[in-house]
Design a binder for these strands. Structure first.
Length: 578
RNA sequence: GCGCCCGUAGCUCAGGUGGAUAGAGCAACAGCCUUCUAAGCUGUGGGCCGCAGGUUCGAGUCCUGCCGGGCGCGCCA
């Protein structure tokens, strides 16, 4: 219906241009600023086109509106009337019959397309890669990773539904000092276990088992979490481990530590409903046979963007808007994290992705300019590389923030949070707000208020409808094919309003995908669920009036389908009963 | 000091790329289970959109300055 209105305006403008009443300027435009009117006094659809083009046309909006209206050719006879209102809004009133026919058509569409209703091809098969979580394999995932996982995974689902060819990737930082520390930490614990200290503490902490005051002074770079001593004890129990030399044991601690942590991370994410197409190891970038870091630096060098100073090798990122130039190779010969990242992102493009999305913690935002600069230095359009910032989560308990430090070993893991509040509530809560807004996640609140949690409100709508269908089945109601159902029995304002909302779903998907904002879906879901609950309370769906019953069954079936589809895009379950 | 993000109801936040009278949940108060699930529904109150200018037909939305909060500014990752 909206498309039809747009077409009418377009034709009217073109006709006016041909007649010389409007300038050619507007022919180039493909937007006609049509929107569903918020207030029914303003009709069904409203266009601001006259206001928008008033300036370049050098005419008053009112005059332009008059010209357009005069030239609108309502071939399908769908318009009741057109009005000019306010400063120059053009309000379209659709004939009742025409509007209702269009709405019933939506129910048909949903019935036919099922789970594919809302699917779009705006992505046009464009290969997009989205990298998220990418936590260091030096400890368990925490709640911040959970938020990144929920946002990244949901965005991937959304983009895929909108027609993009999406691949999800996890970047493993298994090279450099972080994993070195992991290995050392485990080995140190092991050494202490072997020296007869039963708990394997590196030093005796001043307050018993409590590391919340920070790492011991004589071992500032060690991870102190309980999982470290767990790993040490686990390795110590392995026969193959005890046979190794001390040097080999250190290596073993690092390598097996990484492996074990990665396995844990993968398990947690899988439990969270998140899987990846690719786990990309940083070590791969240093593979001697095709040293990608060297290749990346060489490429940049050939472009004359690399220079040496103070014994270090630099990239001239200031050429592309960065504050200062950045080091690629330190004067001790070691490459920087930045160098790895450049090689990694270069490889992403080499693998054929046309757009790259990175989901980062907001505390890394200062890193964006240099990365954008690097992308340009490699000869790419900076728009092909987008960073989505996810604000860190404040984990609360009883209204008090839970202080967490990986080093000190005091943190609540994502796994624990999931077990406490449930994965559905967890994911939905993360997607309730814009990713870049701060989020207080109070465990006790989410737990105790679980019955008032928006996720249950939405899921309940779905479950409730399942229950209705069970009732209908019990009563022996067999739904005839939709062509044989008199949908025009759906005439209540709330029924038409619900269908209208259903009809808005495909556009919502497209807009949310374009804006990369999955949280719009959660808002839509709450609104739709609200309308459904209200409708349910006021009207019986199953009644002696079979014709009406059939029509309503198709309506609520469509509602259930859209709820299910949208929940699925969020990675949240749509239960049949609760 | 410089840079980025944020400031909307008592609280937590939406506000679709500038549109008509700024919304929702929670909290508060008053009601609704002989009815397909009360994890639900109905109603009420609540606002200087941080402040001050600017851009234009029109600003919560865009620009500038200030105030207040968060984060970042390494040859760390």
């Amino acid at each position: 219906m909206k498309k039809k209105i747009e077409q009418l305006i377009k034709n009217a403008i073109f006709s006016a241009v041909d007649a010389g009443e409007l300038s050619l300027f507007n022919r180039a435009r493909d937007q006609f600023y049509v929107d569903a009117a918020k207030d029914s006094k303003h009709g069904d659809f409203a266009s601001t086109i006259a206001l928008v083009i008033a300036k370049p046309e050098k005419k008053s909006p009112h005059d332009i509106a008059k010209i357009i209206i005069r030239r609108i050719d309502d071939l399908d006879n769908i318009l009741e009337k057109i009005e000019i209102a306010g400063p120059g809004f053009i309000n379209f009133f659709i004939k009742d019959i025409a509007e209702r026919d269009a709405l019933y058509g939506v129910l048909n569409e949903i019935e036919v397309q099922g789970a594919n209703y809302g699917r779009s091809d705006i992505g046009n098969g464009k290969p997009v890669q989205i990298e998220f979580v990418s936590a260091n394999p030096t400890g368990p995932l925490h709640i911040g990773h959970g938020r990144g996982a929920a946002v990244g995974d949901s965005l991937a689902r959304l983009l895929s539904f909108a027609g993009y060819d999406v691949k999800k990737e996890f970047y493993i930082n298994d090279f450099g000092s972080q994993v070195e520390s992991l290995g050392n930490s485990i080995y140190a614990r092991y050494a202490l276990l072997s020296s007869g200290r039963p708990h394997g503490y590196y030093v005796s902490p001043p307050h018993g088992d409590d590391f919340s005051s920070g790492p011991p002074e004589d071992a500032p770079n060690l991870y102190l979490g309980e999982y470290i001593s767990d790993l040490a004890q686990e390795f110590k129990a392995r026969p193959e481990f005890e046979k190794l030399s001390e040097d080999e044991k250190k290596l073993y601690c690092r390598e097996e530590g990484i492996k074990t942590m990665l396995r844990q991370i993968e398990d947690t994410l899988s439990k969270f409903g998140v899987s990846f197409d690719e786990w990309y190891s940083e070590r791969k970038l240093y593979d001697p046979k095709d040293n990608l870091v060297r290749a990346a630096i060489d490429e940049l060098r050939e472009k004359g963007l690399v220079f040496e100073e103070g014994g270090a090798v630099w990239l001239r990122t200031t050429r592309f808007g960065d504050d200062k130039d950045r080091v690629l190779i330190r004067n001790n010969g070691q490459t920087t994290y930045f160098a790895s990242d450049i090689a990694y992102h270069r490889d992403k493009f080499l693998r054929g992705f046309k757009e790259i999305i990175d989901v980062w913690g907001a505390d890394h935002h200062g890193y964006i300019p240099r990365m954008k600069a690097a992308i340009q230095a490699l000869g790419h359009n900076p728009d092909e590389f987008n960073v989505l910032l996810v604000q860190l989560v404040n984990l609360m308990r009883e209204g008090q923030p839970v202080k967490m430090s990986k080093r000190a070993g005091t943190f609540v893991t994502l796994e624990e949070v999931m077990d406490e509040v449930g994965t559905d509530a967890c994911r939905f809560t993360f997607l309730l707000r814009r990713p870049d807004s701060h989020l207080d996640f109070d465990l006790d609140l989410v737990k105790s208020q679980s019955s008032e949690n928006p996720v249950y409100y939405v899921q309940y709508a779905h479950a409730r409808l399942s229950s209705v269908f069970r009732q209908a089945a019990e009563k022996g109601i067999a739904l005839p094919p939709i062509e044989q159902v008199n949908l025009s029995r759906l005439s209540l304002p709330e029924e038409l309003a619900i269908i209208k909302r259903l009809s808005a779903f495909p556009e919502l998907v497209e807009k949310a995908a374009e804006a990369k904002e999955p949280h719009r879906l959660t808002y839509y879901l709450q609104e739709l669920a609200g309308e459904l609950h209200s409708y349910y309370f006021r009207h019986k769906f199953i009644s002696d009036d079979l014709e009406l019953t059939y029509a309503r069954m198709y309506l609520v079936e469509a509602v259930q389908q859209v709820i299910k589809t949208a929940l699925n895009l969020l990675g949240v379950n749509a239960p049949g009963s609760m």
